[in-house]
Design a binder for these strands. Structure first.
Lengths: 232, 232
DNA sequence: TGCCAAGTGGACGGAACCATCCACTTCTGG
DNA sequence: CCAGAAGTGGATGGTTCCGTCCACTTGGCA
């Protein structure tokens, strides 16, 4: 996690700056492109052809490329809202008087977002590796905030003492893979999150699990889920 | 899991049949191609260009395509050994007098394989969705075997009663994503497996975890890990 | 040994996508 | 209203990869 509330402000401000110098028609096109990108990314993943986004936006490719010189720029901009949401939830979690509740809500929120918004998991990671000072700072701020949350939850005796902040990333990446393999199967992601939250608790106790997923190996029909080809 | 020992036999037999009708030079080339494919897949993932495999094997593309008409055929053949290993471990697990030990070993083995052999996670899934009767049967045999293992482990009071066989697939897919995102980071996969095995136990107890991964968000440098682009 | 079926390699056409370039259109300030 | 700066679209060349085709080579059997 590396999104702090500070990021929200700076992101929004930067967005304003980007938009401000634009002619009104250009600004309108920019919005159209972002809307189209969100739709197309949701349908076909963040590797959908740029031309598809442009067509959907009713705009030429050149316009798209001028506004967003690289695909990454487009992805970042398209998922800025979700990133902000993550930042807000992290901030809330740190302020939560019950640190475990905050911890739990943070994890559940981000994992649900990964589940619901196709393309977001990739965008999530994409948002950080940025050479700009601003991003590096936001990244570190987020990490510090999460580390604080972890320490508080451990001090409260709710989170196991050997939980390491990097475990969050491990969990998010795992969930990312799961979601990629089973788009739309909320049950699978829900199960993973429930299991891991139990494992993260200091007081080992078995609670009720959400219903299991209905996946079976044979459900991987046809040649192969393209989403998984590249990765493994 | 859908690999039974029956599969090993049939696979090997089928392989023999495939090979038997071949002229000696063709058989040699087939082996060369498989060796090259293993190397190339390990280096560049299972979506590496077919031409690269062919070149590495010192063979023309036509030869490759005649022997393995589709990429999936090649992938399946290249990872047949690992699939067999999975089948053997499943068979051993079912026969293990301590069902939890078998269950644990099965999971750890497959996850370690996913971690160590790039391309294998994809191949693993790829091996199943097959329209042939043989594969469907092998698949069902494996599922039955694993279900038996689960039941026995639950009866022994080691595995939590609400564990569902589909959770295995959930776990493997999650690990698959993790491994894809962090190739070479055994610690991350180890942590995930340790957490989940704890969560799967009937008797909740906190054991020692393997050391945490050193991943940090900022480690996702450069544009973006290509392995993850497609998937999310 | 010689025939020919089996096997082979690489050229080739086609598809998908990227990202640039440039002639044309549209805003906007004076 | 009009000049020119800002913005635009789509044609275009380039790259990568796929998968087939066909003229040539090679192994094995009579």
């Amino acid at each position: 996690m590396a999104v702090g509330s500070s990021r929200i402000a700076s992101r929004t401000a930067a967005d304003g700056e980007v938009t401000d110098g634009l002619r009104v028609d250009a600004r309108r096109n920019r919005e159209r492109i972002l809307t189209a990108a969100r739709e197309v990314f949701a349908e076909r993943g963040i590797d959908a052809p740029m031309a598809t986004v442009a067509r959907r936006a009713g705009v030429g490719v050149a316009t798209l490329y001028r506004r967003f010189p690289t695909r990454d720029d487009l992805v970042r901009a398209a998922f800025a809202r979700q990133m902000d949401l993550c930042g807000r939830v992290l901030a809330e979690a740190v302020d939560d008087p019950d640190p475990w509740h905050g911890f739990r809500r943070l994890i559940e929120t981000v994992c649900a977002l990964q589940q619901e918004e196709r393309g977001f998991p990739a965008a999530f990671l994409l948002a950080f590796p940025d050479t700009t000072q601003e991003h590096t700072r936001a990244c570190e701020h987020g990490e510090r905030a999460f580390a604080t949350l972890v320490r508080r939850a451990q001090a409260a005796g709710a989170l196991r003492p050997d939980f390491h902040p990097s475990d969050l990333l491990v969990m998010l990446l795992a969930n990312c893979g799961l979601v990629a393999a089973l788009p739309g199967d909320g049950a699978a992601s829900g199960r993973l999150v429930a299991y891991l939250l139990e494992a993260f608790r200091a007081e080992p106790a078995r609670g009720a699990l959400p219903p299991p997923s209905a996946v079976r190996l044979r459900d991987f029909s046809g040649p192969f889920p393209k989403e998984l080809r590249r990765e493994c």
